[in-house]
Computed example of a mutant assay.
Amino acid sequence: MADLRPGARFLPAAHAILRHERERLDALLPGAHELVLVGGSSLPRALTKGDVDLHLRVPPADFEPVVTALRDVYEVVHPEIWQPTLATFAVEAALPTGVAVTPAGSEHDVRFTRTWQRMAADPRLVDAYNALKLRHRDDPAEYERQKSAFFDAL
């Protein structure tokens, strides 16, 4: 795993990317949608390798048309993890950036939204997340398993 640094180091750039992608998506997508910053770069104390995670929440009826439209704008990534309520893309930006698309209210939406809200509100959860990252920094597969279990527990 790359060097880990506090999210505070990346917050200004992450917010600039968020603003840019909001403008881009507002022009591309008619109707309601919400783009939010999540992930380690969204929390000042969270350790991160410096990537930016964006979460695009769309009305359930718009999920398929939005995913289709985004295929023309973003690069599809991790198609092996796509679900009926989750699609993932890479965004060309100053920092490595990904966007996860979910229908609002779906299991994946709730997982992204609530997890990062809870972590933002509780420094102890950020400490536990940081410890998990440090403990498994040399074993990416185990880190992904442990991170998933951590988020499931939240």
Results as ranks from 00 to 15, higher is better:
Ala149Asp: 14
Val73Gly: 07
Arg22Gln: 14
Pro123Gln: 00
Trp82Cys: 04
Val67Lys: 10
Gln146His: 08
Val36Lys: 13
Leu43Ile: 12
Val52Pro: 13
Arg124Asp: 15
Asp3Gly: 15
Val38Thr: 13
Leu132Arg: 06
Phe10Asp: 06
Ile81Val: 15
Arg135His: 10
Arg57Ile: 04
Val38Cys: 11
Ala104Ile: 06
Arg19Val: 07
Trp82Ile: 02
Pro12Ile: 00
Ala149Lys: 10
Val38Gly: 14
Val77Pro: 12
Ala94Trp: 05
Pro123Leu: 00
Ala120Arg: 15
Leu54Gln: 05
Leu125Thr: 13
Arg124Ala: 15
Met1Glu: 07
Pro140Met: 00
Asp127Ala: 13
Pro12Arg: 02
Pro12Glu: 03
Pro44Gly: 06
Asp139Tyr: 06
Val38Ala: 12
Ile81Ser: 11
His78Gln: 12
Asp51Lys: 09
Leu47Asn: 11
Ala87Ile: 11
Gly39Lys: 04
Asp138Ser: 13
Ala100Thr: 09
Ala93Lys: 05
Ala61Arg: 04
Pro30Glu: 02
Ala87Arg: 06
Ala93Asn: 13
Leu29Ile: 08
Leu56Ala: 08
Glu144Asn: 14
Val36Arg: 15
Val110Ala: 12
Val36Ile: 11
Tyr143Lys: 03
Pro96Gln: 03
Val76Leu: 01
Ser41His: 02
Gly40Phe: 04
Ser42Gly: 15
Glu142Ile: 06
Ala141Asn: 10
Leu4Thr: 09
Ala90His: 14
Ala2Cys: 10
Asp127Gln: 13
Ala131Val: 06
Pro79His: 00
Leu37Ser: 09
His108Pro: 14
Val67His: 04
Phe150Asn: 07
Val52Gln: 10
Arg22Lys: 12
Lys133Ile: 04
Trp116Ser: 10
Ala121Met: 10
Val91Trp: 03
Pro140Ile: 00
Asn130Ile: 04
Arg71Lys: 13
Asp53His: 06
Pro140Thr: 01
Val99Met: 00
Thr88Gly: 11
Ser106Val: 05
Trp82Glu: 15
Glu23Ala: 12
Pro103Val: 01
Glu107Asp: 14
Thr85Asn: 14
His15Glu: 14
Asp109Phe: 11
Arg71Gly: 08
Pro44Lys: 04
Val101Glu: 09
Leu56Met: 10
Leu4Phe: 14
Asp62Pro: 03
Val67Phe: 08
Arg114Leu: 10
Thr85Pro: 12
Ala14Glu: 06
Glu92Gly: 13
Val58Asn: 03
Ser106Gly: 13
Glu92Cys: 02
Ser106Asn: 11
Val73Gln: 07
Pro84His: 01
Trp82Met: 09
Leu35Val: 05
His15Ile: 01
Leu125Trp: 07
Phe112Ala: 05
Thr68Pro: 02
Pro65Thr: 01
Ala46Phe: 12
Glu21Asp: 09
Val91Ser: 09
Ala93His: 08
Pro84Leu: 00
Lys49Asp: 13
Ser42Ala: 15
Glu64Thr: 14
Ala149Leu: 08
Pro123Val: 00
Pro140Phe: 01
Ala32Met: 04
Leu29Ser: 08
Ala32Pro: 11
His33Met: 05
Arg9Pro: 15
Ala131His: 10
His108Phe: 07
Leu37Gln: 12
Tyr143Gln: 05
Phe151Asp: 03
Ser106Asp: 09
Glu23Arg: 15
Leu43Gly: 08
Leu54His: 06
His33Asn: 07
Ala14Ser: 15
Pro30Asp: 02
Gln117Tyr: 02
Leu154Lys: 07
Val101Asp: 11
Ala27Trp: 00
Phe112Pro: 12
Pro59Glu: 00
